[in-house]
């Protein structure tokens, strides 16, 4: 595995120069590698991880479990494509186990999410059933614990 990816996954603001120093590689090589990763879709984007609960934005998010009839030749991909094309859909995974597609969606209100499920998802032919779970609180996302600021609690022990 390339350490560069791990470093960027943790802190996308590191500059190629800094990564070069940290990994003992050439800055030009790092730049080239990043470009290549971006081109071939290994690196898909750079985003800030926002705790929206700290803002006045009104939103709800929900996890929806979908059971699907797979389609001849294309399996789940075609249905998945239909679903992920909606901008409301934040994440979509194909799952093993009791259901098939795991959809995470965000909306302004409960009603908005509910009508998305009934109007957009439930009506898809291949969808056998839906089960919607609203998120009450986010504790941790992308490896980051929410609500904890960056305070250094280490005591100034004389070491």
């Amino acid at each position: 595995m390339d350490k560069l990816l791990k470093l960027l996954e943790e802190d996308a603001r590191l500059t190629p120069a800094q990564i070069a120093v940290m990994t003992q590689r050439d800055e030009g090589d790092i730049k080239k590698a990043i470009e290549e990763y971006e081109k071939n879709g290994t690196i898909l984007g750079y985003q800030a991880l926002v705790d929206w609960d700290k803002t006045d934005r009104e939103y709800v998010s929900a996890v929806i479990e979908l059971r699907i009839t797979p389609q001849r030749d294309r399996g789940f991909d075609k249905v998945a494509e239909m679903i992920y094309s909606y901008p409301e859909v934040k994440s979509l995974y194909l799952m093993s186990g009791g259901y098939d597609l795991h959809v995470i969606i965000e909306g302004k209100t409960l009603r908005e999410v509910a009508s998305f499920v009934s109007d957009k998802l439930a009506v898809i032919d291949a969808v056998l059933s839906t089960s919607t779970h609203f998120v009450l609180k986010k504790y941790k996302d992308e490896g980051v614990i929410f609500g904890s600021g960056e305070t250094d609690e280490r005591g100034s022990c004389m070491v």
Partner: peptide, 9 residues
């Protein structure tokens, strides 16, 4: 901005 501690972060 401290760089003083003698323990892991």
């Amino acid at each position: 901005i401290a760089l003083t501690v003698g323990q892991p972060d």
